[in-house]
Design a protein around this nucleic acid. Structure first.
Lengths: 341, 341
DNA sequence: GTGAAATTTGTAAGCGCTTACACAGCCCCG
DNA sequence: CGGGGCTGTGTAAGCGCTTACAAATTTCAC
């Protein structure tokens, strides 16, 4: 930075061309499709490139070509380890293929998500990764008008048209609920993230309802509390549930963070888990194992999801066609927090 | 974007200009410096803009102007909650000022970091945020040649020239060590991340040495194990330490994740914390509180660091001059894992 | 009402790169 | 040995935007 004269403009394609005694077209070709240039010329050009320390100007490249080699992703927040993991894998894989990832976060607010999507598109994202299906038809229309390949992640709903990679939230949670019921629980409650514009949470809650109905329990009577992400919120919700119905023997949470909160509230209230009350989570974060008692939860392959999402995105960019959605398996990690009723 | 067959050409500045019956220059001015245009014209233009759903083309803007309004950051990994938090805050604040954040990660490998930095610069990052000071002189030279304002974060070393925002790793850890010594510990060991190209870890280790020397203990004899990030690695390291010297009464870890591993290993080995051995961490992640016993650790204001880093970066971009480095305070969170020797 | 200053708008020259098209060698076949 | 096909390279036309500079219009003091 310094106050030194910044006249030292960076080398351009033309500079390289002059030095190597070729035209700019040839230099461009050397860089982008080396096999269209004969070896001798190429060596000369590449030598000039490295001598000058040339690096292509991104803006110009984007303008002239029509690709930015950029993939955008809008996630609720990086602070949720679930997304951090997936995005990290996504980025690594994308990087391996010469693509750059542009990340924006919406703080779980849909207007913000919409704005971020528009920003990313304006910045030239060639493709987009979004979390879950829930968003306005206008946004989808915008995306399709702009012809931006879009992949939905963290969710997979059989039969949906929109390409996605994820797991079946409803089915996964239903499986967990069957397990809970199998342990003799009848009075079940659920702590969920707000379901209004979050199909993942909604799917999980519906999974519980479904499994309860299946077992002849009155799923409609499921005690449900919705609360934002956060350990504290999980605590509060748990207290509310136990206050409203002390008979509750199982509290199913739609994510591990809420479950950890519930676990903590239980301990503070003098309840023993799982003897007095069972608690389950979803995600299988590291804290699920660390918790005391360790948390029974649904394991989700976040990293694999990120990695494979990258592959799909790249394919979409290459082939320009809608890929088949991918359903990733989840499995239940049985730990101590779930016991007989 | 993209080479899709159907050429749904997006509206350009010229389209807006035609529709509003003005020149492209005027449209550009309406968007970038509205006060240089009279009200009536502006309204007409803005109307056209929204009717057409116009959004400026990023590449063109970057080419013509010479700003991309993009800030790049290279962090070791998103999976470390410490960075996820800080980056999240950085991004939010940057967004508030119309800047976009480009994130890359280096997986704690310095060659990779170097590559990422070059990529970001090539992609037109106007400024850069890097973690810690440690990197090759060549990279610094490159950055200064390219005149890319660079801010170092997560580290602050008094007297260093390079602008930074962070905390004094050495002093913070020294303070913690004094506290440990104050509890009567004499046989102290340390589990650190690899210090080779990580001045933060190195600073923390040196802090311990310093405090020990200060107290007349033989700092040179400090048992030190370096191991990569990860709970498991913390466990292994702890076992090694106790195997090598069962007399050890305090194990200081340079981050909470390693400390959690140590805690777990201790429990598995049948040792009680803090009665048999005290364990301390650094960072104050959420797990520090959840751990059993809760972890005594150094609290670091990650979010604030991210937020303020954004402000500094914006200032550097605006004023084009080197800002004063900022030292953020840390404080010790005394919890159960540290007790008398 | 006039001229000069101030304000608003238009003109056009790039920014650095990609790529369609043109052109020059070259090889091969008849 | 001439022409059709190749292959390798050059020429030049933009891509959409910003911004000096010029032109047109308004403002205002006298």
């Amino acid at each position: 930075m310094g106050a030194s004269p910044e006249n030292t403009s960076l080398p351009t394609l033309a500079d390289v061309a002059k030095r190597a005694n070729v035209s700019t077209a040839t230099v461009s070709r050397c860089l982008n499709s080396p096999d269209r240039v004969v070896g001798k010329t190429r060596d000369r050009v590449l030598k000039a490139v490295s001598e000058l320390g040339y690096a292509p100007n991104f803006g110009a490249q984007a303008l002239a070509g029509k690709q930015t080699n950029t993939v955008g992703a809008v996630i609720p927040t990086m602070e949720n380890a679930v997304f951090a993991r997936g995005i990290q894998a996504l980025q690594e894989e994308l990087g391996r293929h010469g693509k750059t990832l542009l990340i924006a976060s919406s703080a779980y607010r849909s207007e913000l998500e919409e704005e971020q999507v528009r920003t990313l598109v304006a910045r030239g994202a060639d493709a987009l990764l979004l979390i879950g299906y829930d968003r306005s038809p206008e946004l989808y229309a915008f995306l399709s008008k702009r012809a931006v390949p879009t992949l939905v992640a963290w969710s997979y709903v059989p039969g949906y048209d929109q390409p996605s990679i994820g797991f079946d939230n409803r089915a996964s949670m239903a499986a967990m609920c069957r397990l809970v019921i199998g342990h003799g629980h009848r009075k079940i409650a659920c702590i969920s993230a707000p379901t209004a514009s979050n199909d993942r949470a909604r799917g999980r809650v519906n999974g519980i309802r479904h499994a309860m109905a299946e077992a002849g329990l009155d799923g409609g009577a499921l005690r449900l509390i919705e609360t934002p992400y956060g350990i504290e919120n999980g605590e509060t919700a748990f207290r509310e549930i136990m206050a409203a119905d002390p008979e509750t023997t199982a509290v199913m949470c739609v994510n591990d963070v809420l479950a950890i909160g519930a676990l903590r509230a239980a301990r503070e209230m003098g309840l023993t888990v799982p003897e007095d009350v069972s608690i389950t989570g979803f995600d299988d974060l590291e804290i699920a194992i660390l918790a005391d008692p360790a948390l029974t939860t649904v394991h989700v392959p976040h990293r694999e999801m990120g990695r494979r999402a990258a592959g799909m995105l790249i394919g979409m960019l290459r082939d320009r066609e809608k890929p088949a959605s991918v359903r990733l398996p989840t499995d239940i990690r049985m730990r101590r927090s779930l016991g007989p009723a």
